[in-house]
């Protein structure tokens, strides 16, 4: 492959751009320079570390190591979902609902894609498994976080409406159905929009990366299409799962709306 290797001087020049931006922020009193520099530093450190991890992982192809890395990624995503909620579930429910939904959707679809579509040898070859899983987790995480946030804040706002339906003898399932639909839409709209705009408004990052590293455009496009379909299926499945468990948790066995389970 005809990859042009980047030198540390190249990276230094790019870093200079960020420094210039920090300078501008300071001059214009935007107050962003500190956050900007810390974020840039984090990018450099975190990506270097993950690069080293991947280097080791790619050298030692073993299902055990891969599983360990996948679990760390999953738990980090679960934490992120929880931290994005305005009204969190009390106890460990928020973490459990988010993590379970991501596990069910991201893991099953990544494994399915590896076994039936991409088919590397062995199927858990880290060069394929880790980036695919990463992209799945990142996107399902967004969908799940958005939809859960919509549902819990919706339940807070629409308490009177939901209870009016319960009073008339609706089951919890009927009483929350409208809100559940809205939440599913909220979670899935970003990926639907991304699919609709792909290639016209933006060149997706993964495809750009593959092209830069020398992959023929048509091959890169095929991968990108595969990924987009996987992501939309994963986001849909994850969102629906999270909404199901999340809405069920808002009610008890006597079909009472239990907002005390949120904080």
């Amino acid at each position: 492959m005809n990859v042009i290797h980047l030198t540390y001087l190249d990276l230094g020049l790019a870093a200079l751009l960020v420094l210039v931006l920090a300078l501008v922020s300071w001059r214009l009193q935007l107050g962003l320079q500190q956050t900007l520099l810390i974020a840039a530093l984090r990018t450099a450190i975190q990506l270097t570390l993950i690069g080293l991890v991947l280097k080791v992982l790619f050298g030692a192809i073993h299902l055990g190591w891969l599983t360990l890395v996948a679990l760390v990624m999953l738990l980090a995503a679960g934490r992120e979902v929880m931290s994005r909620q305005k009204h969190r579930y009390r106890g460990s429910w928020g973490f459990a609902i988010g993590t379970t939904s991501m596990f069910i959707s991201s893991f099953s679809i990544t494994v399915l894609a590896l076994l039936t579509m991409v088919q590397p040898d062995p199927w858990y070859l880290p060069q394929y498994a880790v980036p695919l899983l990463g992209m799945m987790l990142g996107n399902t995480m967004n969908g799940i976080a958005l939809s859960l946030d919509r549902m819990t804040s919706g339940a807070m706002q629409q308490q009177a409406m939901i209870e009016a339906r319960l009073c008339l003898g609706h089951s919890w399932n009927e009483a929350i159905s409208d809100l559940r639909r809205e939440s599913a839409r909220t979670g899935m709209i970003p990926i639907i929009n991304a699919m609709a705009a792909a290639g016209i408004v933006s060149l997706p990052g993964m495809m750009t990366g593959q092209i830069l590293s020398g992959t023929p455009p048509v091959e890169a496009v095929k991968y990108q299409i595969l990924i987009m379909f996987m992501i939309s299926a994963g986001t849909g499945l994850g969102t629906v799962t999270a909404i199901w468990f999340g809405s069920k948790r808002l009610f008890d066995l006597r079909h009472r709306l239990r907002l005390d389970r949120l904080k």
């Binding site: 009177a160 339906r165 003898g169 089951s171 006597r254 079909h255 009472r256």
Partner: peptide, 20 residues
């Protein structure tokens, strides 16, 4: 009896009505 059936028979009318 199930809670929905109970509330159908023992019906509560809140002071503020809500419509969905």
């Amino acid at each position: 009896i199930s809670a929905p059936l109970w509330r159908r028979q023992v019906a509560y009318l809140p002071a503020e009505s809500a419509w969905w």
